Simulated assay, not measured.
Amino acid sequence: MFELFQYADEEYFKMINESVPKYSIEITLETHDEKIRRDNGKFSCTNQKVIDSLNFALKHNCAKIDLFFMVGIPGQTYTSAVENIDFCETIHLACNKDPRIFYFVAPLAPFLDPASPAFEHPEVHGLKKYCHTLEDHRKAITQPSWKHMLSYETKDMTRNDIVNSTYEAAERLNDLKLEYNLINKEDYYDIREKIEKSKEYIKRIDHVLSLPADEQAFELAKIQEEIEELNKYSICGKNELKWEVQKNYPNFFSLALVGIEQLYEDYVNKIRHFLSPKRRQQFQLDTEYQKIK
């Protein structure tokens, strides 16, 4: 598997094809917006050049192309994030509807990479950073919703915008795949259901977090089993990600589950601590007594 970060001409793919028995390509294009790509230094070429690269790869026997678009990158607006799916259709048609191209959309989540330029100088990149220290990140990962885990916002998109545009783009991409027979109906309806449920859980978790602290643990426990079942799936087809690329694109439901488990455990410990004051006091007295002896 070869990963591309810039335009590649036909000779490049010809050499690959002659050098290996079989190959695939992974491209994190991030966005259809040429200006944003130039600013980020990734595929700083025209969209036509992107399409040319894809067609060259397909012409020279590339077995599979994974093409990723991101939500929440600097300079991107809600509308621009959703319009990535329009560019997916443009690419699909320009590449003769070749089924070897697989399209994905995912948020830049949950954290900015520590020590990266965006992390060190967020204001330069149009970002607002919420997590500064290791402890900030530890606390963030305990949040029960990936929206609340996000360590940043951009000057153009709030956390809500990033979450909502991610799901809207995912819905549109799912529709696109069905329209062009890139996904079967069973997977289509399965993904659509997962997206709808995940949107519902975002709202429910927001409500839970607005409750008094002593009520939150009970409410989180009520939905934990539901999310655990949902966690088995993602918003892309179960057979689409053949390569080991999932590690870079976190499963939203998995993030929610991790946060709920840790947050729930914190509340259980707090409640247990609150309900057992005598036992706690006795332990402290025993300890002091041991020191005196």
Rank of each mutant, 00 (worst) to 15 (best):
K242Y: 15
I235Y: 09
A118I: 04
Q246N: 14
K222P: 10
P277F: 07
I25A: 05
Q224H: 12
A140R: 06
E200V: 01
T158C: 08
G237M: 07
D156E: 14
I183Y: 01
E153L: 05
P144G: 10
K35G: 07
M157C: 10
P212L: 04
I51K: 09
R280D: 14
L108R: 00
L263G: 02
F252M: 06
K194P: 09
L134I: 01
N248V: 00
F283A: 13
E240T: 01
L220F: 14
K64A: 12
Y180T: 00
K129C: 04
I202L: 04
I205E: 06
D286R: 00
A217I: 13
H125A: 05
H32F: 13
A115Y: 07
K177Q: 12
I202W: 05
I292V: 09
E3K: 00
T77E: 10
M149Q: 15
F43R: 01
T287S: 12
N164G: 04
N164V: 01
A81Q: 03
D9N: 14
Q290T: 02
L134V: 06
N174E: 11
V71C: 05
S151C: 15
V71D: 03
E123R: 02
D33S: 06
N40M: 15
Q284I: 02
C95K: 08
N184H: 12
F252A: 05
L209Y: 13
E30D: 14
F104I: 03
Y167T: 12
C236Y: 15
C236H: 14
F283L: 10
N96R: 06
D266A: 00
L285W: 12
N164P: 02
K59G: 09
K293P: 05
